[in-house]
């Protein structure tokens, strides 16, 4: 293995002489494996310019993409989880929350805020999957409920961006009732004639699909996002067969009549603006 033999020993380049080569200059698409500049990937709304793969991003990226100049006022930013059941599995729930907070820098699995999108006032709630699988507990339900209250009070359209494995088991019954709570608020929003757009991103399953995510005046998604009630593994075990290709993809869900359209993330802002202007 000694193809390269170091001729001079002890080369020590002083720091100031070292060439600058910052980390993260390049992005490799996990789908097509092709390389593009990180900056361009970001300009492309975190989608691959070669294969259109939509990188899974969270609230920070969506807020940046949708709010003009990334300017928005965050709502209830300090809300965090309690431990009403004293829940413990292999780890105590408060410890799990704490370590997830440290790891992600997030307070819980949703962030909500209001601002302008192409000059149009809008309230946006966006889930973060890397916070315990984007699971919905009391904080997620409460923040969404309050964001809808804000939309109601100010008569501004509401956009919900879902990405979640479903309800959070560590708050058991409390999590289940967040499905009811958010649906109640959406019923009020609907009565008030305020538009509600639900964007289902990869993946959206379980109690989130069975409540607010499917209740939009417009249910929309991104290409190839996984959308379902039961997860693929559970269905496979139930029916004892492999699932057909493309089952539970956004395209499949659109075909079966549960989505209004699928939109590329880089077109999202303009398309939503056009839609909202048409119904204004």
């Amino acid at each position: 293995m000694s193809w390269f033999i170091r001729k001079e020993k002890g080369i020590n380049t002083p720091t100031e002489m070292k060439r600058e080569a910052p980390d993260g200059l390049w992005y490799q698409c996990p789908n097509c494996k092709k390389i593009m500049q990180t900056r361009e990937h970001k300009m492309n709304a975190y989608t691959c310019e070669h294969c259109n793969y939509h990188e899974k991003v969270g609230s920070e990226a969506y807020f940046e993409i949708l709010f003009d100049h990334n300017k928005f006022t965050e709502l209830d930013a300090s809300l965090t989880s309690a431990d009403p059941l004293n829940f413990k599995d292999t780890k105590a729930y408060p410890d799990r929350i704490r370590s997830t907070m440290e790891k992600t820098g997030l307070k819980d699995a949703v962030r909500t805020g209001y601002g302008r999108m192409n000059d149009l006032e809008i309230v946006i709630a966006c889930m973060d999957f890397n916070f315990i699988g984007g699971s919905m507990g009391s904080v997620v339900g409460e923040k969404i409920a309050r964001a809808i209250d804000h939309a109601l009070k100010n008569r501004q359209p509401f956009l919900m961006i879902s990405r979640s494995g479903g309800a959070r088991m560590m708050e058991a019954g409390f999590s289940l009732m967040q499905m009811a709570k958010t649906s109640a608020k959406l019923a009020l929003l609907s009565e008030a004639g305020i538009p509600y757009i639900s964007l289902l991103t990869d993946p959206t399953t379980g109690g989130v699909t069975a409540s607010y995510a499917m209740l939009g005046d417009f249910n929309i998604s991104e290409p190839e996002a996984l959308i379902g009630f039961a997860g693929p593994r559970v269905i496979r075990e139930t029916i004892g067969k492999d699932l057909p290709k493309g089952f539970q993809s956004a395209e499949f869900v659109l075909e079966h009549g549960f989505l209004d359209f699928i939109v590329d993330r880089k077109d999202l802002k303009d398309k939503l603006t056009s839609l909202l202007k048409m119904i204004q």
């Binding site: 499905m179 009811a180 649906s183 109640a184 959406l186 019923a187 609907s190 699909t209 069975a210 409540s211 607010y212 995510a213 499917m214 209740l215 379902g228 009630f229 039961a230 269905i235 089952f247 539970q248 079966h256 009549g257 549960f258």
Partner: peptide, 14 residues
């Protein structure tokens, strides 16, 4: 799933 289990439940709640 094809017939929208999630949507059916969600609609009932609302």
């Amino acid at each position: 799933e094809e017939r929208g289990q999630g949507e059916a439940i969600a609609r009932n709640l609302k």
